[in-house]
């Protein structure tokens, strides 16, 4: 089973003070730590677990700036067999469509049975790349996928629906699946594990080597233009519920009823 996993390098905004920058088109990212998109971590782990079960090869690829090598190396330490780093200054400012174009170009001539991505990215939450990549490569796609199994040349999996429902799906290979978080328990990648793959080569491939024209990538190759990024307006103050346990619980139940939290 040859699996290609596409991963994204995203800023960690969880504990940061966010500021708007870049002419109100983006957040200020210089001071932010970056890491692999959490959804994609599950995708890499799933690929490695599949390989451990049925054999094959796992390739990790990312369209990301230089610093992201760390993420690719960590993926190798997690058990991927090879990693490719697609980067060119011209890629800066690519939207989901342009990123899918770059990835599709890279993948097109490679053998693969399965492409895994995370369903969403932690930063822009667009959820575009997986589907568009599948369309460009002419393979079927599904999102929010878990419980992946194989049967002959088919893949069987579950797909999350609204209201806690699952849909069981069967699909022909090759296919592209965008995974849900929590479909596995990602293993811990220790410093020693990363050290072991320290000398593994991670080729950096630029626009030209991919055979892409600069007009196909970056803002020029994008279909979406960001108008403005803004902080949400400050909301009304939260209500601090005082009083004893009984009183507080009563008030809480009241609010939840009022707002439709409970029936």
């Amino acid at each position: 089973m040859d699996i290609i996993v596409c991963v994204k390098w995203v800023p960690d905004t969880s504990e940061a003070d966010l500021a708007i920058a870049g002419g109100a088109k983006d957040i200020k990212k210089d001071d932010l730590d970056h890491d692999i998109n959490d959804w994609d971590r599950f995708a890499v782990e799933e690929a490695v677990q599949i390989k451990e079960k049925v054999g094959g090869k796992v390739t990790v690829v990312s369209v990301a700036p230089e610093d992201a090598e760390e993420m690719l190396r960590e993926s190798l330490a997690r058990g991927a067999d090879e990693a490719f780093h697609l980067w060119d200054d011209a890629f800066e400012g690519s939207d989901g469509y342009a990123v899918a174009t770059i990835l599709a170009k890279f993948i097109k001539d490679r053998p693969f049975d399965l492409i895994l991505t995370g369903t969403l990215a932690d930063d822009d939450c667009s959820g575009q790349v997986g589907g568009m990549l599948a369309a460009m490569l002419g393979v079927p796609n599904a999102v929010l996928v878990s419980s992946i199994e194989f049967l002959d040349r088919k893949v069987k999996f579950k797909k999350e629906l609204e209201g806690g429902l699952y849909e069981a799906v069967e699909m022909d290979l090759p296919a592209q699946l965008s995974v849900a978080t929590g479909l596995n328990e990602p293993r811990f990648v220790s410093i020693r594990a990363v050290r072991k793959v320290a000398s593994a080569e991670i080729p950096v491939i630029d626009c030209g080597e991919l055979g892409l024209d600069e007009s196909q990538v970056g803002p020029q190759g994008s279909k979406i233009q960001v108008e403005e990024v803004a902080m949400p307006p400050e909301g009304e103050g939260a209500e601090i519920i005082g009083g004893g346990a009984e009183e507080a619980a009563g008030r809480l139940a009241e609010i939840l009823k009022e707002k439709g939290g409970i029936g």
């Binding site: 890491d35 997690r78 328990e185 990602p186 293993r187 811990f188 220790s190 020693r192 594990a193």
Partner: peptide, 15 residues
């Protein structure tokens, strides 16, 4: 740790 077998609740703070 070397096998990557670490409770999920401890992984995030270590990361």
């Amino acid at each position: 740790i070397d096998q990557g077998d670490v409770p999920q609740s401890l992984q995030k703070p270590m990361q």
